[in-house]
Design a protein around this nucleic acid. Structure first.
Lengths: 335, 335
DNA sequence: GTGAAAGCGCTAACAA
DNA sequence: TTGTTAGCGCTTTCAC
């Protein structure tokens, strides 16, 4: 097993040439059924595994997918990497790929890492997370025609920013949250989100806004929302402010669980307020906070699938396929 | 950059043989200072990176460290992988290694993955997480003399279970928590943990127990503790039960944040009870739960260091070095 | 201190 | 359909 058995050993044991063994594995259709079966049997018996380094030298393909992992911010909204990585790794393995991990603090250092990786391990593709406006990484990869998929939409609409991506429909999530609250009888529903311009945040706000507009065309949304940096403390003061300014508000939709956790603390005993967060983090589960749940497992699987497809047929048209997944609403005590 | 530049290109550009380039990189002391500098300069200028696959073919070393990632349980106590992986990846990169990810549901399938990996990518070493009694993985690796480090002590005292490991001193953590509570004036301090036999859980209980014994030699600890499976609900009912059974209890130390979160909910307005959890998860931060904080970054760094040292000198004695890190106490509102 | 030759395990071309 | 040859980029002898 650990005592490396090479293709030559298999060939010898099976009484065929090395080539036939290779063909059995890589172009089965070219080998006679009988021979193929026999070779496969010997491979199994000997526990043969093709040496990836040798394959890479010959074919240039490493069957490695590289992904960067960032340090999470406050640790509350940031702990999605876990589930994503697990699923990514699992799906990749099914497709015959392995995941190579790297860290980078910002775009430039991530690009430097690409150069390193490309020179040494030559990953077949990259997975980008946390895409943002003017993403240097995407343009760098695009320029060089390197295969990659982004988890997150390309927020800049550069004409050449066409690449495969997978994302969760944030607007659909906040829309579902808002609809749920409307159905529960709430009429004035506030929104606590991030300052405009962040892509992800704007998207989440939009789902709330369009649902209210849809419900009551004349409704003035300005006073119903607050925009602050992410964080529990910020969420709390924003919620306090909003609730004080509009006594009619009975429910809040938030752009993150951090903000929602803060909103929860802003409530007064005399005035129950329903709160729904976003991300369905462990913290939300812990305190009974309703939250929009992102299908991270599916997202990761979609990333791998897109990549695998692109890698199988490198020539097949513009690789700009994308997948937009719908989040689900997890209802707990808070709403 | 992406246009592969090989050692031959460097040799040509520098006007030396490929050999000299290789030596400059791998045995600098054997190359004349002047030549070395010149070659290094050319390498820099050309952006040369040694092809890892070729190196691996020749030397058998992949500079890859493999680590398994498990799906987390309730997601509260389980989300430490994030921080650990980040640090692992970062430290590894500094030492010239990269992290290869894999998933496995249980010991046997993890072992099957080892065989796969060893056959194909040939990682230089493995990092084991979640070690437990009778760990099949450790014995399998040990048997074959494959380098690995465990994050977690070898809980079985098999005579040959000697391998490098890194762990966090759970007992020291609960001891610190208990001492903190004693210093705050608490006298009857309860403990909510897991059923005996889990290694990690026993260790955490011991820190609490020895501190109380130390404080008050005659104290009967039996009634002050409860053992349940991990989870918020279990923690809540255990705490309720314990508090009802002993009206003198004013503080609780818990073996996990999940249990502590439950204990928090078991409190009655009329009876304030201090609670301290374990793991310092995002959820703890979110609700203001004091908790024992594990230095995961350092732990990961220690793993890499141990591995790197073992890999540099494969012959240097029994590779049974270990590192036991002290956790810290993060105090918040709950205690 | 530097160069030449060999070969790691594999597969793409070609020949049989 | 199967076998033979060559060579991917690197390091490790061993001459020089």
């Amino acid at each position: 097993m650990a005592e490396k058995v090479t293709i030559t050993d298999v060939a010898k044991a099976a009484g065929v040439s090395r080539q036939t063994v290779s063909n059995t594995l890589n172009s089965p259709e070219v080998v006679r059924e009988e021979t193929r079966k026999h070779v496969l049997e010997v491979i199994e018996r000997l526990g043969y595994r093709a040496n990836q380094a040798a394959i890479q030298m010959r074919t240039g393909r490493s069957r490695l997918i590289a992904i960067g992992i960032e340090p999470d911010g406050d640790g509350i909204s940031g702990s999605w990497a876990d589930r994503f990585l697990h699923s990514l790794s699992e799906t990749a393995a099914q497709e015959g790929y392995r995941i190579l991990l790297y860290t980078a603090a910002d775009d430039p250092s991530e690009i430097a890492t690409y150069e390193d990786l490309l020179g040494a391990y030559k990953p077949d593709a990259f997975v980008l997370t946390g895409t943002h406006h003017d993403d240097l990484r995407a343009s760098w990869l695009l320029e060089r025609g390197l295969p990659f998929v982004a988890f997150g939409r390309p927020w800049s609409d550069l004409p050449d920013a066409r690449h495969p991506w997978v994302d969760v429909d944030g607007a659909a999530g906040t829309e579902a949250a808002t609809r749920h609250l409307l159905a529960a009888g709430h009429r004035r529903i506030g929104f606590i989100g991030w300052p405009p311009g962040s892509g992800v945040g704007d998207d989440r706000r939009e789902g709330w806004a369009r649902t209210l507009r849809d419900q009551d065309r004349g409704q003035e949304l300005g006073g119903l929302q607050r925009a602050v940096e992410d964080g529990i403390a910020a969420g709390e003061s924003a919620a306090r402010d909003l609730l004080a300014a509009d006594p009619g508000v009975t429910a809040l939709v938030c752009a993150s669980d951090s903000l929602a956790l803060g909103a929860l603390q802003a409530r007064e005993p005399a005035r129950p307020v329903a709160v729904i967060g976003f991300d369905d983090t462990p913290a939300a589960r812990a305190v009974g906070l309703s939250s929009v749940h992102q299908p991270l497992g599916e997202a990761a699987a979609a990333c791998v699938e897109l990549l695998a497809r692109a890698l199988e047929s490198p020539d097949a048209g513009p690789p700009s396929a994308h997948v937009l997944l719908a989040p689900t609403l997890t209802i707990r005590q808070s709403a």
